[in-house]
Amino acid sequence: MTRSFGSERLREYGTYALGFAGLFGVWHAMTVLFPSVLFPTPTAVVAKAVELARTGVLWENLGVSLGRIFAGFLVGVGIGVPVGLVMGNFRFMRRLLEPFTEFLRFIPSVAMITVAVIWFGIGESSKVFLIAYTTVFIVIIATAAGVMSIHVDKIRAARTLGASPAQLFLFVSLPAAMPGILTGLRVAMGNSFTTIVAAEMVAADSGLGTMLWHGRLFMLIDQIFVSLLVLGIVGFSADRLFRVAIRYFGGKYSAIA
């Protein structure tokens, strides 16, 4: 415990930086070992990224994709957390709703693209629907599991300390389930990236998936790799945010963070 908090942070970020440098190093080495016009070097991809950023194309597509993910994720979480809380708290509701969640979660969102386009067209709403769809079941299951894993003594303690049922729910069940909920959100966010790219490749006129698809159509190899690189970076950043949140809610010393 002699090491200060600050230098621990520095070590953490330093190690990450080293890891990323290694990733780019391996990439570069591969392009040297297997030189091909179909496999651009990191420098070429970064140069292309800078160019796309300057013209605004990158920001526009990134913004569109993130907007869709954000909206769909919000809808999915908005439905998933309350439903999960109800399912975790009441066995009756769990039995009633499990056929829905257990049936639908095995139909991949990618398979739902066709239905989404038929129902909502190729506009924004079909993408929002798909992200919400891919988010909601994971969030429901993780939230319900989070509630069910609350130690009975936490509930009993609150009752003997005079908490009303509403207070019990708000001040004990919800925060105690929070690490579970956030873990669900974290997994759902990963799925959202998969879904948005697939949906935009098939049925959209903007977004990172479309950028990727156009790269394929017009043989813009660099642009394909820029899309992939950006997806990786944005996904990694989103995941970091969830880890920080999980740590904050008592998961500080647990394995999940």
Binding site: D153, R156, A157, L161, A176
Partner: peptide
């Protein structure tokens, strides 16, 4: 009031003082 055998009855997202305040807050 009940004092439990296991400290699983404490709330890890609250500080020591917030845990002690819990009943009064309710």
């Amino acid at each position: 009031a009940v004092v439990f055998q296991s400290h699983d009855s404490l709330y890890p997202w609250l500080t020591a003082i917030e845990n002690v305040e819990f009943g009064l807050r309710m």
